[in-house]
Computed example of a mutant assay.
Amino acid sequence: MTTEQALPDPRLDVVVKGSGPALLLAHGAGGGIHGNFGLVLDDLARDHTLVGPHYPGAGGTPVAEKPLELDELADQLVASAVAAGQESFTVLGESLGSAVAVRVATRHPARVRALVLTAGFPVADPALTLAAQLIKSLAAAEQWGDVARLACLSCMSATDLTGIEPTDVDALVTQTLAVMPPGTAHHFDLASRVDVRADLAHLSVPVLVVAPTGDRLVLPDSSYRLAAGITGAELVELPGAAHVLNVADRATWLRHVRAFLRTLPARAT
């Protein structure tokens, strides 16, 4: 489980930004580096080197010709970091990216110094399973507008949605559709199949688990199970926060993450 794996040739489109200790960014299904981390990229890049690979079908990475596999994706993220000159790093995983981050840590333990897992899951819970099934079937029927509607419904909090005028709902769907990567269905297919429950006991690095308690795509209990399965993991909650963090909740997330990074030995950040 913890034997270091050989690295493939890197094939992912990568965002590299900043200077300092490395943070490897693992984005979520249907997301991307700017979509998931855009609100904090500039801040984190002030004192860290950010390496943000895009999964197949996101950013500039071509859509995969076959179903995605977790081990291959984890290895590609590490290969991207090494190609960017970063031999070790802390991994920040969001949603599906949390499972990717866990697998990175168990396949490449010598390279990973710490993990930050946000809105994550060790295995798809019922809410995510149902959403993934709907997204795959709607995508197969080319009903991308309905995929965007489902994304708005499941990824925003009740408070966020309450603040939107009914006349603006169509504009929200249009905006969501415009940033939805072409690999979304492949990403959610992988999210529905991953299972890192056996990996958790093998993690020996510092881990911060961040649970948005208003998440309706990945239930908060999934984050709690992640934290419970990892010896010594620190768990923090974002009260009422949605799966996709709004500006205020992302600012709170940033404070927690920076506080966690400050606790790590110099080489661990």
Results as ranks from 00 to 15, higher is better:
Glu4His: 14
Gln5Asn: 08
Leu7Lys: 05
Pro8Glu: 14
Lys17Tyr: 00
Gly18Tyr: 04
Gly18Cys: 08
Gly20Leu: 05
Leu24Glu: 08
Leu25Asn: 02
Leu25Arg: 10
Ala26Gly: 09
Gly28Asp: 12
Gly35Met: 03
Asn36Glu: 05
Gly38Pro: 04
Asp42Gly: 11
Asp43Arg: 14
Arg46Pro: 08
His48Val: 03
Pro53Cys: 15
Pro56Met: 07
Val63Asn: 06
Pro67Asn: 05
Glu69Arg: 15
Glu72Asn: 06
Leu73Met: 03
Asp75Ser: 10
Asp75Ala: 11
Ser80Tyr: 13
Val82Tyr: 10
Ala83Ser: 13
Val91Lys: 06
Glu94Cys: 15
Leu96Asn: 08
Gly97Tyr: 10
Ala101Ser: 10
Ala101Cys: 06
Thr106Leu: 14
Ala110Val: 15
Arg111Leu: 14
Val112Ala: 12
Arg113Phe: 14
Ala114Leu: 13
Ala114Trp: 12
Leu117Asp: 04
Thr118His: 15
Ala119Asn: 11
Gly120Leu: 09
Val123Ala: 05
Ala124Arg: 12
Asp125Val: 08
Pro126Cys: 13
Leu130Ala: 07
Ile135Asn: 04
Leu138Thr: 01
Ala141Asp: 07
Gln143His: 10
Val147Asn: 03
Ala148Glu: 01
Cys152Glu: 02
Ser154His: 13
Ser157Gly: 07
Asp160Lys: 04
Ile164His: 01
Ile164Cys: 01
Pro166Cys: 00
Asp170Met: 00
Thr174Met: 06
Pro182Trp: 15
Ala185Gly: 09
His187Trp: 03
Asp189Cys: 12
Asp195Val: 01
Val196Trp: 00
Arg197Pro: 01
Leu200Lys: 05
Leu200Gln: 01
Pro206Trp: 01
Pro206Leu: 05
Pro206Ser: 00
Val209Ala: 04
Pro212Asn: 13
Asp215Tyr: 09
Asp215Thr: 15
Leu219Glu: 12
Leu219Gly: 15
Leu219Ile: 15
Arg225Phe: 12
Leu226Gln: 10
Leu226Asp: 09
Ile230Met: 03
Ile230Lys: 02
Thr231His: 12
Gly232Phe: 04
Ala233Ser: 03
Leu235Ser: 01
Glu237Ala: 02
Ala242Asp: 04
Ala242Met: 01
Ala242Asn: 00
Asn246Thr: 12
Asp249Glu: 09
Arg250Gln: 11
Thr252His: 09
Val257Met: 07
Arg262Leu: 00
Leu264Gln: 07
